[in-house]
Design a protein around this nucleic acid. Structure first.
Length: 252
DNA sequence: AAGTACGTCAACCGCAACTCA
DNA sequence: ATGAGTTGCGGTTGACGTACT
């Protein structure tokens, strides 16, 4: 794919956004909503591709973004959600109003991973590092055995990961033991989070422009009642979430 | 003061899924 | 059914700031 198809057609800017560009995009979307992203740059007078505009809006210009550092509670929540969802950043972000998937991904890669390792926890499996090392040893051993004995075991590394999730301390009510942190959120609230998250909101907000062209209004869509009501119908539309559902059907 | 290493974050890339004619 | 266009997502990169030598 390389650069987006739209970018080949004309000389488009790349890299950091200037304040002028931000202003143009913000003004345009505030007045008209984004509509079709591919037509936004042209209509807003920007030398960017639609994808770049969308990203800039989502990660920086959206009015509902929460700025500033993550709280300890937010970090704990991210860790708990990651234990269940893995690197599904957008789904994790859906549980943290005002935070973007990009922001959470960056935090995870630059900060949380390191902290977990310092606590002796493997950030991929959320198991104690010592246990993970043993697992690796065991899996290597199993591989050797499999080469001689037929096995129905999946080779998909993700399968291994998910089965590990099912037995992770988070799902079993343990959460990460953090004796230093009084704010450490227990995993007791994880169940409601998961149930409400089964239906992934398209975005936290939708904008509706009035017929008169006045400023759009922003509606918070992440209403748990709404989601729970809807969840019975679209609960298992996503392949990964089906796996979650099966998993939680077993554990809840 | 200069050079280097490291951490953070914004943005890009590539792919898959979705939509619609 | 199909193919082009669009959107969304997660991985990766590169610029920049800061700490360290």
């Amino acid at each position: 794919m390389g650069r987006h198809s739209c970018c080949y057609k004309q000389k488009l800017r790349k890299g950091l956004w200037s304040p002028e560009e931000d202003e143009k995009l913000l003004n345009y979307i505030t007045k008209h909503g984004h509509g079709c992203w591919s037509s936004v740059p042209k209509l807003a007078g920007l030398q960017r591709c639609g994808k770049s505009c969308r990203l800039r809006w989502i990660n920086y210009l959206r009015p509902d973004l929460k700025r500033g550092p993550f709280s300890q509670q937010e970090e704990n929540l991210i860790i708990e959600l990651h234990a269940v969802l893995g690197n599904r950043w957008s789904q994790i972000a859906a549980q943290l109003p005002g935070r973007t998937d990009n922001e959470i991904k960056n935090l995870w890669n630059s900060c949380i991973k390191k902290k977990l390792r310092q606590k002796g926890i493997d950030p991929n499996t959320h198991k104690p590092l010592s246990e993970v090392e043993n697992d690796i040893g065991n899996k290597l051993e199993n591989k050797v055995n499999e080469s001689t004995v037929g096995s129905i075991k999946s080779d998909d590394p993700e399968d291994i990961k998910w089965s590990e999730y099912l037995h992770s301390p988070f799902l079993l009510g343990g959460g990460i033991s953090n004796t230093n942190n009084q704010n450490s959120s227990s995993s007791s609230h994880l169940q409601p989070i998961l149930y409400s998250n089964i239906v992934k909101p398209e975005s936290h907000f939708s904008n509706t422009t009035t017929a008169t062209g006045s400023n759009p209004t922003w509606h918070h869509q992440n209403d748990h009642h709404q989601l729970q009501a809807a969840s019975s119908e679209i609960m298992y539309t996503n392949k990964d979430l089906q796996r979650l559902a099966v998993a939680f059907g077993q554990t809840l």
